Amino acid sequence: MAMTLRLTDEEAEALRMRAELEHRSMQDVARQAVREYIESHSRVDLLDRVLDEELPRYAEALERLGQ
């Protein structure tokens, strides 16, 4: 799926410099950044969901351990 990504001049220049430094295309660098963002936030979301679902089950035991 194709999309258009609008960057400020500063963002575009930073991306161009990063891509040049890594001998990669700007598109490759941007796509990797998107993948890393999604992966990172997916882990946080999963952890939050597990804690929300499982923590109440063990709340009493955790409270006792804290005493």
Rank of each mutant, 00 (worst) to 15 (best):
D45L: 15
E13C: 00
L55F: 13
L47Q: 12
D28Q: 14
V44N: 11
A33T: 14
E36W: 03
A30Y: 03
M3T: 08
R6Q: 06
R18F: 03
L7Y: 00
L51R: 09
D9R: 02
R49A: 15
R64W: 02
M26Q: 05
P56F: 08
A2W: 14
E22D: 12
E22L: 15
R35Y: 06
I38D: 07
H23G: 06
H23E: 11
S40K: 14
L55R: 04
M17T: 10
S42N: 14
V44Y: 08
S25L: 10
D9N: 02
E22N: 08
A61M: 08
L65I: 10
E54S: 10
T4W: 02
T4Y: 04
L15Y: 00
R24S: 06
D45F: 09
Q67N: 09
R6V: 09
A30I: 11
L15T: 03
T8R: 00
E39R: 14
V29K: 00
E11C: 03
Y58A: 03
S25G: 04
Q67D: 08
V44I: 15
L51Y: 08
R16E: 05
S40V: 11
H41C: 12
D45G: 13
M26Y: 02
R64K: 09
E63V: 05
S42M: 12
E20N: 11
R31E: 07
E11T: 08
I38M: 10
L51F: 09
